[in-house]
Amino acid sequence: MGTGDFKISTFMYLLGAFVFVFVICQSAFFITKAWRQGKKIGISSKDMRNTVSSSILFTVAPAIAIVATVLTLANSLGIVLPWIRLSIIGNISYEVTAAESALNALGVAGGISQEVTDKTQFAAIMWVTSIGSCFPLILMPLILKKIQKKIGTVAKANAKWADLMAAAAFIGLISAFIARSIIGAGKEDIIGDGAGIVSVATLLFSIITMLILERLAEKFKLKWLEPFTMPLSMILAMGVAIILVQILPADIAILEWRG
């Protein structure tokens, strides 16, 4: 990884271990408290044990899918930072957006499609992802107790509006990236950065695969497939990019209409 070694240094792994221990401790603390309370109010140990085992089963598949997204970010950010970021308030679309935004602000060509080798840029990404995602941790101690008392009724009455606004914000975010994949210009010296045959083909293939897999999972009631539809579509579409670059004539494969 050349000059990028700091991304996978022992120090970074130590930071990762720190986050790992913190998340485990918090969860263990709450399980202990809830378990005691459960016994007190008469929930059987068997019911609580069942909750633990079914939750583990439920979680395994989506968690493996999260590992796949950690790997997709590892090219540019090394493997440790995506691991840290997706272990705490993690969410793939937030991380990608925040990292892209940080690099854009610093005027770095190519964004996260290129390996980040500069420590200062890397530090900027860490700050933007951390501060960008910290708001719930400020918000909850301030308002959660109040809203939990009131919200039950309000959310039920306006559930449709709340869902719609959350979806609209999310769609707005996705739209920016989709538009860039269709018609955005890249930097001149970087192949594959701007929109072109390969980016549009990857995008379309990913959308179509996702729709087909979701339909299959629903029609044949393939519960195990559901959590994998997204990572699978993503990985298959990335596979299509590899194949296209191999089989298309070189000048077509690197064609980017806006430069």
Binding site: T72, V96, I112, I174, I178, R180, V198, M210, A237, L244
Partner: peptide, 27 residues
């Protein structure tokens, strides 16, 4: 290498697909 260069279209295509299907009018 081309696969990693196309992470964003692949990711947002898959992520967007189910939202587009559910909320086409918003898209």
């Amino acid at each position: 290498a081309p696969a990693f260069q196309q992470v964003l279209p692949a990711l947002f295509g898959a992520l967007g697909a189910s939202y587009f299907a559910k909320h086409f009018k918003l898209t």
